[in-house]
Simulated scan of single mutants.
Amino acid sequence: MRPITLIIVHCSANKAGSALRMADIDRYHRSLGWIGCGYHYVIPTDGTVEPGRPEEMVGAHCKRHNRYSIGVCYIGGLSADGKPTDTRTEAQRTALRSLLEQLHRRYPNALIVGHRNLDPQKACPCFDAVREYRDLNP
């Protein structure tokens, strides 16, 4: 297994209420010539945790950090007028926390961060993941 030092939280940069699923992201990423969904997990608005790339495979979600990270993406992140905002549904909040708790147990030394913590040009995931999940960080 590859060493995991980061668990990176993303948003899909879609408007609140988007019906996007992992299969849609997978199709889009394949259209770019990728081998499939760049995230390891996708959480649609109903709170289902949908697996993307297997954890053993390097993701394609955060330049310079893919080799040693797990990428988790919730669907949403934009307000109705297209501005970055935390659009997580209650089901997404619950599912995301539960998934991060599971990943933290598997990778206890991995730091949970938002994409924006590694790329200041990004607003993703449109909330402060470090602060929200500080109880899970090493």
Rank of each mutant, 00 (worst) to 15 (best):
Q92Y: 01
A129W: 04
R67N: 08
T89Y: 05
P44V: 01
I43V: 02
I112F: 06
G36I: 02
G17F: 08
P44E: 05
S18G: 00
R93N: 11
I112A: 03
H104P: 04
N117E: 14
Q121M: 06
E56K: 08
A95M: 08
P120F: 05
R30T: 08
A23F: 11
D46A: 04
E132V: 08
N117S: 14
G33R: 06
Y107K: 02
A95H: 05
D135G: 01
A123I: 02
R30I: 11
N14L: 08
T45G: 14
G38H: 01
I7V: 09
L6Y: 15
H61L: 05
G82P: 10
H104I: 07
V113A: 09
Y68I: 11
L136V: 06
A95P: 12
R116V: 10
Y133N: 02
Q102M: 03
S31C: 04
G76R: 02
D81G: 07
E132H: 10
P125W: 01
A129M: 05
I35K: 13
E55L: 13
K15Q: 14
D86W: 08
M1I: 06
A23K: 08
S79H: 10
I35M: 07
D26N: 15
E56H: 01
P138W: 03
S98R: 12
R131P: 15
R53G: 00
R21M: 00
G59E: 07
E50H: 12
I25E: 03
G33I: 07
H29M: 12
P51I: 00
C62Q: 12
M22K: 04
L118Y: 13
V9A: 04
G33P: 03
S31A: 14
P54F: 01
I8V: 07
Y74S: 04
R30K: 13
E132W: 14
L103F: 00
G38R: 00
E132D: 10
R105V: 09
K83M: 12
